[in-house]
Each structure stands twice: as structure tokens, then as C-alpha cells.
Design a protein around this nucleic acid. Structure first.
Lengths: 368, 368
DNA sequence: CTGAAAGCGCTTACAG
DNA sequence: CTGAAAGCGCTTACAG
């Protein structure tokens, strides 16, 4: 948005004559214009309009507000940011805004910011580590008051990421992580291992004895923790998984690994004698991909194969049969982390949330 | 992010001694610091670092870049915005970022901005007209270069919204609409009526003769246009819809209206003699809600009832049976509208996209 | 090619 | 309570 510099404000209004619109406004109204119109100093106008501990006399305030209203004054947030050394901005970094996991969190974050006067800047990094770091840099340039980082990250990226975040914090920026925590960083931590273990316990309790696990890349901490938590619980019950695969932490990854499970014969049409294998996918999106592979082969859930995910993304509400998962209060998580950031004192506050296993049709055993 | 004002930069670095980290950096590095370190004027440093038509000598440039790198300089985007009268920001306003329709568009918009150096500001308005206007005001304050408005809006809100957008444009801001166009506004226009008519044509061609339409609020232009386009095509074929309901343009709305359809007996278990009713929901989310209602009553799709939506949100890929819909290239739409904004000359450019009917299982007729 | 200086639109000690 | 003035960190004519 470009505002010409040297010109007088004639009048801010639009005159419509038939189909012809004559535009009379030439530039944005500045605080100085409002002050002049109200017959006060710029300092006073600022105090009336944009908040201050000093409260001008009500009579003056009324005049200023009237002038601002009449001229259509909008404070220039950039100038305010510069003068105040605070931009009123919060940056949110997600892997993919089109992924329901992240868009739910984003919605929560947006809600958490409501009424705070802060605006959200969004960066969707497409899971590229470099893009994530670029996003942090950009947010630093914009002097965002805080940065919210959502999603699991790998060990390797951490060095660079941490370095830049450290710089950010040294300059007074706040950081909150969602999901996987980074050292010295507050936010909402998801108890992946424990929650996955709870799911395994429920599944065992429901009578399952045959399992497979579809996990994500070895560097994706979240994937690893979920898989390990799940497997740990199994071995505690003296149960071994038939297979543990490792692939991409995405829908496509779930699809491919399930295909592999079918190719190797670990998963196939039920013979009525054995219990179906219960396949734990370390996130819901992967479970959806796995399901697509099963459907292509005409295998039915839960008769031939049982399936479980993790996250309880909103998409699952429309799945039929219902898919067993671990419920995470995604929107709340987003909201809470925004609130943590807003709460100055809570800079280092860290909250841990445990997921709740939800057993649905997809893991229902027909025979005891 | 708060930067203390009166202090010297000692050194920007982090010394790690075993587990103890000693923080030596005290404030953000300014351009003046870099200039001094490199032994040049601030003007020269600016030209080297932040772009300009004037190109300083390479030897000097090298020195400046080295100093910037060494000190860890980050340009202050707010100051740049103030000096340049351009913030490098694009505002995106959606109804609900957690809705796949909007999050797909958001992803596209983000991609369209990639490499342009522009950052995205996001506002999710929860379908509250007032929030939408507030978002525009806020974006105006931040002097965003452009605003992208996604989603259908009602007639009533338009007056206020248009007024504020007009002010915005008068100050040089660009505006693009996605979906429903506003007068004098460029962007990506969705040909709702035509596309819905095309769907009706396909459905008729597939042998359907009994229809019901679940539409959105009367003020939601998109809903009205889709319903009318669909019905218009039917009457052209001398077919009357059994029912046309009007409710909320949401998943919940679809659910309720389908319940009503069942209560009034318009939709029910197939008797094998009649063709099932084909229910057209004016968007996919509504179709999903309608489907949920059908499942609760144990009705099957497409045997008892056929169903069709509109949008082809990514969620549909995981529906089984597949749901007939009208495909909109959501991500492309977002990307294109961002590109339109980036293209200065194209301020008033308007692109129209037609949806493509995709017939899937949910409308398959078993008998010819 | 390079630098001194004004200006972007605000806020906020500091005086009055 | 109110105002004059300096300052926030940049960019960019304007001279040299």
C-alpha cells in the first residue's frame, strides 16, 4: 500500500455520479491531520486515540474522536510498532495449513488471540526445514512479539532452528512450541509416548493380540515417540508386533506402508480363524492413507484388518466406519499456546497434554 | 518484541561453556551498527543490504555483507515499511481456517506468495460480518499491500464492507475476492450457477429423475446461485425438485435439513420400485453433514438415497463411498488470486473458474 | 559511486 | 492536563 508523501488532504470521501466515481481522497489521514482538525497537539491526539496512561480531559477527547471519525483516521501500525518497539504481531508457523491437524491448531490460536489486539502472521512451510527457519527470520524482521511453532521437527534441523530462536529470545521475543518441545522453550507439549501406550492398553483390553505399527521418519520425534510408546506397552503385555514399518509421516506414507503390509502378506483377507491384525498408524492422516490402500484391495475394516490412528482430526468425524484414535484437543491446544504467549509472566510455561484413546468401529472385534 | 533503546551492542554471539550459556547480546543490531562496523555510511549499507537501483562497489559491498553477517543484522521490517510506504504484507480473510475449503485456499495463497517476499497476515472471522470488517480495518492499519477476501458473503454486509474496502483502495490498497465477487473488485470468480447446472445435467444424463436441494441462507449468494443453477437446469428438462430446503451453509445445516427430509418422508428406505431421491447439497461440508444424518438412520448411499455436494474439498478423497461433487481447483484458486495481487497491472483483473462435475459412487443408480 | 540529511507516522519522557 | 521535541530504524532524493 503506497501513500504519496507530498500532498494535501482535500477530503476523504467518494462522490458517486451515476456510474462515474470521482475519487477525491489523495492519501491516508495522519495523526497530525486529526490533531490539527481538533485543534490540539499531536501528543494529545495520540493519547486520546491510541491509549496511554495520561488521560486528556473528556471535552478534548470528544473533539479528537470526532475529528478522527470525520477524517476516517486509521493509525499506522508500522509507525506505532516503530515508536513502541512492539508490533502487536504473533507469528504462527505450521507445516501445512491445509492439513486438518494444523488448521485446527491455527483456528485455536486465532481464537486465543481474539480481543488481545494482536494479529496473526502465518507461514506454512510445506515441511521444509529451511522454510521454517526462513519464516522465523521473517518474523524476526517484522518484530513479531511472539512465535508459535507447531508440528514435530527432526533432530537435525534443531541446531539451526534453535540458534535463530535463541537470537529471537535474546531480543525479547517469546516462543512457544506445540507438540514436540525444544529445550528451554515453553508451550504445549503432547505426551506422545504415554498416550500411545494408553491406546495400546485399550486395544489389548479389547482383545487384540496381533499388531503392526506404521511409523514416520526416524528423525520425526513425534512419530518415534508414538511408535515406541505403543510398542513398549505391547511388550509389557508380552506381545510382539508382527511388523513395524517406517515411512513418511503423511497420508501418502500411510498408503505406501499399508501396501507393503499387504504385499508381504502380513495383512490380508480374514480367514475367520485368526483375529485380524490391528494396524496402528502414528497419525490420523496416515491412517486415512492406509485405509485408501485397503479399500483398493477390497479388504474390509474391521473384519479383515483393524486400524487405529492418532490425533482425532476433525476429518475423522465423517469416516464410516469410525476410526479408532487418540484424541487430542487440537483447537484447545492452539488456543492455550496463544494464551501462554499473551501471558507475559508465562514465558517459560509449559503445559503437557495427554491424548485420550477413543475406540471406534475400526478396531471392533467380532469374536471374543 | 521489545528492544531497549539506549545501550551499546557489545557483541552478538553466544558462548557455550559446558552446560552454561553466557548471553552477550543485548539488543537488536541496527543498520547504523553495520555501517559503522564496515566503515561506510548508513545509506551505503542500506543500498547493499536491502536492495536499491544504486549498486555500491563490489569491494564495499563485500565489507558490508561481512559486517552484517558477523553482527547478525536483521532489517526492521516496520521501519522499512514506514520508510518505503509499503509493508510487504498481504492480508487473507477467511470464514474459518479449519474448514478444508478455506484452508486449501489459504495454502494456495501462501504458495502464490512464495518468493515474492510478501508475508501473509491471516484473519479467520468465524462467519461474523463484523469480524470481517474489523479484519479489513486491522489490515489497513498494518498497511498491507493487498487484501484477499475468501468466501461468500451476504448482501447486507456488503454495504459496510464495500465502504471500508473502497477507502482501502483509495489509499492504493489492492483487493481480490475469491468466490463471490464484489462490484469493482478483481479476483477469482466462481461460476456457481453454471457449474451447478452442469452437475444437474450430468445427473439427469445418468438417469436421475427425483431430486431434492439443500441450500444455504438466502443472503449467501453462493448458496443461492448454486441452488438456482441446479434447479434451472432441472426445469429445462421438465423435472421438478421434490423439495428445496433452506438452512445453514454449514455441516450442521446439511445435517438438519437431511433430518427434515427424512421426517417428512421425502427421503427414506428404498422400496426397490422407485429410483432413490438424489439430494444436492450446495457444498461438500453440508453433504457430509447430510450423510451423517443418513447413517444415523441406517439409510444407505446410494441404494436408499443419492447425494451430491459442491467444491471437492480434499476431505472427500477419504470418503467411502465416493461422493459426487463439482470440482473446484481450490489450491489453484488461492494461488491465482495471490498472483493477481502481485501483478500490479492486474489490479482489476478478474478470472472466472467453472467447476467440473465429478460423478462418484454416491449417485450411482443400480437399475437403468 | 558515496554520504549527509530529511522524512515516513507514530509515542513518550520531559517541561510547563 | 497539554505541548514541543526527540527518537524508533529505515529509505531516498539531493549534492558532491
Amino acid at each position: 500500500m503506497r501513500f504519496p508523501r507530498y500532498c494535501l488532504v482535500i477530503k476523504v470521501s467518494t462522490v458517486t455520479v451515476s456510474a462515474v466515481r470521482v475519487d477525491l481522497s489523495l492519501m491516508a489521514v495522519r495523526l497530525a491531520d486529526v490533531a490539527k482538525a481538533a485543534g490540539v497537539s499531536q501528543a494529545t491526539a495520540s493519547r486520546v486515540l491510541n491509549g496511554s496512561d495520561r488521560r486528556p480531559k473528556e471535552e478534548v477527547a470528544v473533539r479528537v474522536r470526532a475529528a478522527a471519525e470525520k477524517l476516517g483516521y486509521f493509525p499506522n501500525a508500522q509507525a506505532q510498532a516503530l515508536a513502541r518497539s512492539s508490533a502487536g504481531l504473533v507469528g504462527l508457523i505450521v507445516h501445512d495449513i491445509a492439513d486438518p491437524y494444523f488448521s485446527s491448531i491455527a483456528r485455536g490460536a486465532q481464537r486465543g488471540l481474539e480481543g488481545s489486539g494482536k494479529q496473526l502472521m502465518l507461514a506454512s512451510t510445506e515441511r521444509v526445514a529451511q522454510a521454517e527457519i526462513e519464516a522465523v527470520r521473517s518474523f524476526m524482521s517484522y518484530r513479531t512479539d511472539a512465535i508459535l511453532l507447531a508440528g514435530s521437527r527432526g533432530f537435525d534441523d534443531d541446531v539451526l532452528l534453535q540458534k535463530v530462536l535463541t537470537t529471537y529470545r535474546e531480543n525479547g521475543g517469546q516462543v512457544a512450541m506445540i507438540g514436540q518441545p525444544l529445550p528451554n522453550t515453553g508451550g504445549v507439549h503432547i505426551a506422545n509416548a504415554v498416550s500411545a501406550a494408553a491406546l495400546a492398553r485399550e486395544l489389548l483390553g479389547a482383545g487384540h493380540r496381533r499388531f503392526a505399527v506404521l511409523s514416520g521418519e526416524a528423525q520425526v520425534t513425534t512419530a518415534v515417540q508414538r511408535a515406541e510408546g505403543f510398542l513398549g506397552q505391547l511388550s509389557g503385555a508380552e506381545v510382539d508386533a508382527d511388523a513395524v514399518l517406517q515411512g513418511s509421516f503423511t497420508r501418502e506414507g500411510g498408503y505406501r506402508m499399508m501396501r507393503e503390509l499387504m504385499n508381504t502378506g502380513i495383512v490380508g483377507p480374514g480367514d475367520g480363524d485368526h483375529k485380524p491384525v490391528c494396524v496402528f498408524c502414528v497419525n490420523d492422516v496416515m491412517a486415512l492413507g492406509a485405509l485408501a490402500a485397503l479399500r483398493e484391495e477390497g479388504l474390509s475394516v474391521p473384519q479383515d484388518v483393524c486400524i487405529a490412528g492418532f490425533d482425532d482430526i476433525p476429518t475423522l468425524a465423517d469416516q464410516y466406519p469410525g476410526i479408532t484414535t487418540v484424541r487430542l484437543p487440537l483447537e484447545d491446544i492452539g488456543r492455550t499456546s496463544a494464551e501462554i504467549l499473551l501471558d507475559q509472566a508465562g514465558a517459560e510455561r509449559r503445559i503437557t497434554v495427554e491424548g485420550i484413546p477413543i475406540l471406534r468401529e475400526s478396531t471392533r472385534l467380532s469374536r471374543a
